[in-house]
Amino acid sequence: MLEIRNLYASVGEVEILKGINLKVKAGEVHALMGPNGSGKSTLAFVLAGKPGYVATSGKVTYQGEDLLGMKPEDRARAGVFLSFQHPVEVPGVRLDQFLRAGFNAIHKSKGLEELDPLKFDRMLRQRVKVVGIDPALTKRSVNDGFSGGEKKRNEVLQMAVLEPTLAILDEPDSGLDVDALRTVAQGINQLRSPEKAILLVTHYQRILNYVIPDFVHVLVDGRIVKSGGKELALEIEAEGYEKFEQPQEEAIQSPG
């Protein structure tokens, strides 16, 4: 489904990704772990097409298409979903209306039925239940005044509504207490299916107790230095990232 070949990417003048190779097949869950500043969020943003995150060389194909050549909204319409580490507030735009606009844009591009407000509301209410967030949040402005936990759950709700084929989850666990972590993990697990794939970016092993990955990759200084099964995450939990880190020529500042 997703194939990343020798991907280099920069933010501004700074090169963050230095040759990423990764293959994700339908039905798989890949966990991408790494210390702060290793390039995890940068990879997520490059895949989603965030302006300013520029792939300088390499190739990314998604369902046989050149992903990097697509506009961000076209990637979303093709089924690529990014759960933001820091969800953005959109004041004045009600969550349910925002989601319906996105849902219908995706459906329209696929030639599927667009839902009127009533039909959409029925579907949304059912998803709200599944994700376990307060239904009143859907009548409020997107993420505006939401708590940290509510924002994270809202990302999972949006994923449940938009039903992506490839979900890239950028630290969906950061800042959550155990209960919230469990509901977020449940929401993620519900997306698992033979047709869909998940790339789960995380700093801590904790969430992987609930979302069991098929593969774990360790990202250090813009490169995947080790790949393995779920036991690799436990190894990191026990020993930290230090042993994967090679001596560096200089400290690299990076936003992700």
């Binding site: 989603a48 909204e73 979303a76 933001f84 959109v90 606009a101 996105g102 844009a105 995706i106």
Partner: peptide, 15 residues
Amino acid sequence: DEDMLFYCNQRGLST
């Protein structure tokens, strides 16, 4: 700002 627009783009909306 561009972050807000990108967030919307990522949910399938054109700018």
